[in-house]
Design a protein around this nucleic acid. Structure first.
Length: 496
RNA sequence: GCCCCCAUCGUCUAGGGGACUAGGACACCGCUCUUUCAAGGCGGCAACACCGGUUCGAAUCCGGUUGGGGGCGCCA
């Protein structure tokens, strides 16, 4: 039974790089019918909050990741918050002291800091001196009993090699000579990352540790802990980094980086997941726009690449567009509603008439949507109509003599009608053309501008019915119909 | 500085000794469809970092150089 975990620390929003790690773990678990475990690494008391833990889980769920075991859903190997497992870590840290594989360290943080700076300034390797390593154990225990603060460090053996196989990278080799006696248990009683991680992965029966490349150098340290404890260790797979456009670590400077920003930015979760899957992995059949279950089916760690990838917002947008076109339009309508409310285009309660209109309107603009959020700007054409604010290009066109004649003529045919259907409308446009001997662009373009105040946009065939129908429905911002729009444009042209 | 990892179009990638004239996708450019703009369709530009070795044959294997990235906390 394959068991993997995603182990974030609840210190802020979830970064897409971390999300990618979560997603790959999840794909691997689902593909192999294994378990995906969510473990909260909240041993940094200063920075961890329950609030971020909550947000983190919400964001993960939004993305489409579910977990079989975790702090909120429970499981047989909990608790799943490290802060609730302190006794377990202590027990094993003391066990290592007893076995002689670890020792108490009484150096203060300030002292160590000073030492490190000194070594660094001399161009040396910042490595703990091992000062407390040879303290007599009886004496150390005595000091601890008296209440002196002490951390516990691992006695890292010298001249040994740690070799492990990484599923992505093959055999990796490290000499223990470059590993210092790192801290297992901090003087505040909390475990360090490299210790807690080992204990938890063992207790939770993790079979595959899939994490970012930035953890490669932690792996030999953790293996040393496994060895000292006499435990076998899981398989490792280190995923390549996700970088920003300039090749440095992806950060705010490059654009959106947290899951909630993509959510708010109008991305479909399956599109983001799809895009994330393409960072370091590719489908054997070469297709890129994939349903989640297709990815699960095809996913293999063996197909994960070794080199870092740059996060490409353009391609994400393109993938998002593909997914927008793929899912049922009802869902797109549903997802667009919050954005439209935000703009004040929709009332708090939607009647059937609203829904019906909305459906047609979304259908009309859907091919222009790169993100769901784009619906806001696409819908302006329905709710805002201000001839006096039209751009120079449109103004110039509409003020031409022939344009004026076209618009007036068409208006004279429409002005007594209560409703203009598309067939009727296009028949009248045709008549106008014949009567004025104007055709083509010269005929159509002025009409477009008269109706939208914009030089380009939706095709009139869908636009005209939408404003005609829309004008009969009650919206917070009234939709003007053909007649009203032409009237206003005419007034603008004549200079009133 | 030290340790480790990585290297195919601008970007994501396929490829794993002969199938390579190196394939696909995004972006970009052009054409087309459309009496607008997009979207769509078609086409184009564009890469094996460098040097050496192994081999009949190297993008592919080996070594080095260069470049990039990661790590070196009582953070995770």
């Amino acid at each position: 039974m394959i068991r993997v975990r995603f182990a974030p620390s609840p210190t802020g929003f979830i970064h897409v790089g971390n999300a990618r790690t979560a997603v790959f773990n999840w794909f691997f678990a689902r593909k192999n019918k294994g378990s995906f475990i969510l473990r909260i690494e909240d041993t940094d008391v200063e920075r961890s909050t329950r609030e971020s833990e909550k947000l983190l889980m919400e964001d993960l769920r939004w993305l489409g990741i579910d977990w079989d075991e975790g702090p909120d859903v429970g499981g047989d190997f909990g608790p799943y918050r490290q802060s609730e497992r302190i006794e377990i870590y202590k027990k094993h840290a003391f066990e290592l002291i007893e076995k002689g594989y670890a020792y108490f360290c009484f150096c203060s943080v300030e002292e160590l800091e000073k030492e490190r700076e000194k070594i660094l300034s001399l161009g040396g390797i910042p490595k703990y001196s091992g000062k407390c390593r040879n303290l007599r154990i009886e004496e150390s225990i005595e000091r601890v009993k008296k209440g002196e603060k002490a951390a516990i460090r691992l006695k890292v053996p010298s001249d040994q090699e740690v070799i492990f196989r990484d599923i992505v990278r093959g055999d990796l080799k490290f000499s223990t000579n470059f590993i210092e006696d790192f801290v297992l248990l901090r003087s505040n009683g909390f475990p360090s990352y490299n210790f807690a991680c080992v204990i938890d992965d063992k207790y939770m029966r993790i079979t595959h540790v899939i994490r970012g490349e930035d953890h490669i150098s932690n792996t030999p340290k953790q293996i040393l802990v496994y060895r000292a404890l006499g435990w076998d260790y899981p398989e490792f797979a280190h995923l390549p980094m996700v970088l920003g456009s300039d090749g440095t670590r992806l950060s705010k400077r490059h654009g959106a980086t947290s899951l909630d920003q993509f959510r708010g930015g109008g991305y479909l979760p399956e599109a983001l997941m799809n895009y994330l899957s393409l960072l370091g992995w590719s489908s054997p059949d070469g297709r890129e726009v994939l349903e989640i279950d297709e990815i699960v089916k095809a996913f293999e760690l063996e197909r994960v690449g070794k080199s870092p990838s740059i996060f490409d917002y353009e391609k994400l947008k393109w993938i998002n567009r593909q997914h927008i076109r793929k899912v049922p339009i009802e869902r797109i309508v549903e997802e667009c509603i919050p954005y439209l409310r935000e703009e004040g285009f929709l009332p708090p309660v939607l009647k059937d008439s609203h829904k019906k209109w909305l459906f047609s309107a979304i259908q009309a603009v859907i091919s222009n949507l790169e993100t769901l959020k784009d619906v806001k700007k696409e819908f302006q054409i329905f709710f805002y109509f201000k001839p006096e604010e039209m751009d120079e290009e449109s103004k110039k066109l509409v003020l031409e003599e022939s344009s004026k004649r076209v618009i007036s003529k068409l208006f004279s045919k429409i002005k007594d009608l209560d409703y203009v259907g598309w067939d009727e409308f296009s028949a009248m446009v045709k008549e106008v053309g014949e009567e004025l001997k104007i055709k083509g662009k010269e005929l159509f373009h002025p009409i477009r501008v008269a109706l939208t105040s914009k030089f380009s946009g939706l095709e009139l065939k869908s636009f005209v019915p939408l404003i005609e129908d829309g004008s009969k429905i009650e919206f917070p911002l009234k939709i003007l119909n053909v007649k009203e729009r032409m009237e206003r444009t005419l007034r603008f042209i004549s200079g009133d």
